[in-house]
Amino acid sequence: MTERLRVLLVDDESQIRRAVTHLLEPLHATVTAAVSGRDALTLAAAERPDLIILDLGLPDMDGTEVCRDLRKWSNAPVLVLTARDQDHDTIAALDAGADDFVSKPFSPAAFLARVRALLRRAGRSGERQSPVIATGELSIDLASRTVLREGRPVHLTPTEWELLVVLATHGGKVMTHRQLFTRVWQGREHGDAQAHLRVHIAHLRQKIEQDPVRPRHLQTEIGVGYRFVCD
């Protein structure tokens, strides 16, 4: 018998805790609740949860701080609950190690999809079995550094290749502008980083997407970053 999934839910509002607990029912998880950042850290250490759902507006600690402290010793995926007008906090939390976010009031379906994606990714931990990431009409071969779209090779510039690799190897995860910039450009001098990033993404979409204005893979999280979606 497999062990039950353990979820740590951190929110100071009891209504949200109840609602989220209901939403998690299909996962048959054991949900432990924490009402403050300090509680969360203590419980995370004691319970070793498989997933942490963290509200950013906690009474005692900045959610970002909780993420940063957690990441010193825990790899458990962290999903942050945020709000439309909290882009800055969301980005800070993601940069501090959170894995994904949903904005309140979130749709239950989208919430569950994010939770499942995080658990799936965490379950796949360890070595990648194959050097090829294949999704839909796209196939990215990390070993031979080639991209095929519908079987035909796509020519990418070195920057576009790096960008695609970083995004595709973190499939499903939102990558902030800063994370992408740091990994792709590795701190090299560049002008307006965010603008360059957007331009490269636009080029990349035109090369790998069938309909670049409705990208299947290179999706945007406006104001936050990008996400590579696998089918």
């Binding site: 509002e13 209504q15 949200i16 109840r18 609602a19 989220v20 209901h22 939403l23 507006g57 709000a83 007008d85 309140k104 009031p105 979130f106 749709s107 239950p108 379906a109």
Partner: peptide, 21 residues
């Protein structure tokens, strides 16, 4: 306004969760 919008988000999230139930 900021506080109203924050205070509304909690019940709206709850309402949506209950609707999905």
């Amino acid at each position: 306004l900021a506080s109203v919008s924050h205070d509304l988000r909690t019940p709206l999230t709850t309402i949506k969760a209950l609707a999905s139930q």
